[in-house]
Design a protein around this nucleic acid. Structure first.
Lengths: 326, 326
DNA sequence: GTGAAAGCGCTAACAC
DNA sequence: GTGTTAGCGCTTTCAC
């Protein structure tokens, strides 16, 4: 690998001048050309490691998400990447599995790699995030709240949960259950509170099922609901994958919406049928990503205003009404 | 941030000794303890940038995939990550969009970041891969062939294409079309050759449709096929997302397999119905990832044997036969 | 076994 | 506008 000294020697200038050319400082045109030619001839690529050691920062953004196999998060990642790319930053994707240990590890890595900033969908405790913020590294929370005074970009989960439930009520359903995610995850709690806001406190306790946030969780919960003595006539799932699981179970049981009402918070990924019968709350996944990236880039650029919270709107598409002809 | 000098001072030893303790060289037990205590008290985290600049390598693996929103590639990424994690390596995920320019850029970054190695699903030309291999950086190709003498882990695409097609023949279909990906992408070509092996050369030319590798590509191609004067009675799609698109169009047209036979190469992600009627070739996405990671880690560890090519098996699940009762 | 010192490739003062 | 020089934090000879 050619170094800056090789380029300097070939161009007949000092390494400092080469550095200046590369970083856009003022250099006389002819020397600049000399340097550029030499660099091209030697296929010179600046060593980012050395640059970073010296300048204590890099054009790297860490994005910590709980599940890379969930299309909601990959769409979000896409948003972050698009925005970062425009600004000349690269994105490092890290899978936390909602495991605070992994999350902490990646946060430490972000530090010891001198990354420019971190965007994360926080798993559980806030303590670990301090690993990053305490060292002055910009951190933006996305999709989930934290107790910390940092920038966040969110959806109003309670409103979303209520809207999904209300759509079912308006479609004529009366016994509406809720499949919620793990109680530990912020957001899922909020969404089921929204459901509660609409169904009221007299809904049976077992109409609220907690499950993991994946397809199998949705399956299990739906099976439980179907086995209930007073079976619900509709269900809200608080994320996309649990919605998939619930629909799978219904399909296997020969039940087709709107025979039983289904509202999904999130988009049904890659559905191979037209989900007209199903109410979907389309979460702005990609937009969450671009917004978070924009906020982070602002901070990296030196923005010092107090922490902001941006709440993005979700859009609802209504499913069929109860008992509608199919 | 505490440095190695701070730790050394606190422990009353030289920085060299601290480094030795951290890297497992032989140090007297008492000094080792002193160092460890000091490091803990100072919350010392080694600076990876400095370490890398000095030692010219890192515990970072770059994984270049064409589409982070395709579940096939995220499953593959999962495999890589699991294996890398075990070995103490971190994975940097990069989205190439099948764009050779982006691919080259990331390859350059892998170099200038002194990454330990690269795993990639190559987009188009081989020339760019040289950017990495020429500098002695280990590179493993996954899912797609290259013309270069490097490790690869693949599926036998021609065999897979033929198997999917043969399953449709055996299910009683006679006019089998093929929705193939972009001609430029290796693998897609192979899969359609496998289709050709089975349908023979007298299949109508317009039964082979090229489309982009995404859902909308599958939709377009399926629409074209349905509009054909001699409409096919079955279709093979050469990847998962195009399969989703094709099924969407069929569903909208009121056509349900096995009325028209469908074979998908890849898994139908998150299907909300039981896809019994559909033939699927289950590609070992995750296993491709773990295998590629294992090979790369071997190389990083100094393995110098000639380039290997590993071919993984795919498993086929048969759909319903033509005209089967539903 | 341990310390002193050089140096990885770059940037940023500081002189000129 | 340009060159000289120090130093980012670490690892690794080389002596002892």
């Amino acid at each position: 690998m050619a170094t800056i000294y090789d380029v300097a020697a070939r161009a007949g200038v000092s390494p400092a001048t080469v550095s200046r050319v590369l970083n856009g400082a003022t250099v006389s045109p002819e020397k600049a050309r000399l340097v550029r030619d030499a660099a091209a001839e030697l296929h010179y690529t600046p060593n980012r490691t050395a640059r970073r050691l010296r300048s204590q920062n890099s054009e790297l953004i860490a994005l910590l998400i709980p599940d890379i196999e969930n299309p909601f998060f990959t769409a979000l990642a896409r948003g972050v990447e698009d925005r970062a790319q425009q600004a000349g930053f690269s994105v490092v994707l890290c899978n936390t599995d909602d495991d605070p240990v992994k999350e902490t590890r990646y946060l430490d890595i972000a530090n010891s790699e001198d990354m420019a900033g971190v965007i994360l969908a926080p798993s559980a405790t806030d303590g670990d995030i301090r690993h990053a913020t305490d060292r002055g590294r910009p951190v933006v929370a996305v999709d989930r709240k934290t107790g910390l005074p940092i920038d966040s970009v969110l959806v109003d989960n309670r409103v979303v949960g209520a809207a999904a439930t209300r759509a079912l009520v308006e479609a004529g359903y009366e016994r509406i259950a809720c499949i919620a995610g793990p109680a530990a995850i912020e957001g899922t709690e909020e969404r089921s509170l929204g459901w509660r806001d609409v169904v009221g406190s007299n809904a049976p306790a077992n109409y609220l099922q907690h499950a993991n946030y994946r397809v199998d969780g949705g399956r299990e919960a739906m099976l439980t609901l179907l086995a209930l003595p007073e079976r619900p006539d509709a269900v809200v799932t608080t994320n996309n994958l649990m919605g998939v699981g619930a629909l799978q179970v219904l399909s296997e049981a020969g039940i087709t919406p709107p025979e039983l009402g289904v509202a999904v918070i999130g988009d049904l990924p890659f559905s191979t049928f037209s989900p007209d019968a199903i109410t979907q709350v389309h979460l702005p996944a990609r937009h969450l990503g671009t917004t978070a990236a924009t906020m982070l880039l602002d901070r990296i650029a030196g923005d010092r205003q107090p922490p902001r919270t941006v709440v993005l709107r979700a859009e609802l598409t209504r499913g069929a009404t109860r008992g509608a002809a199919r």
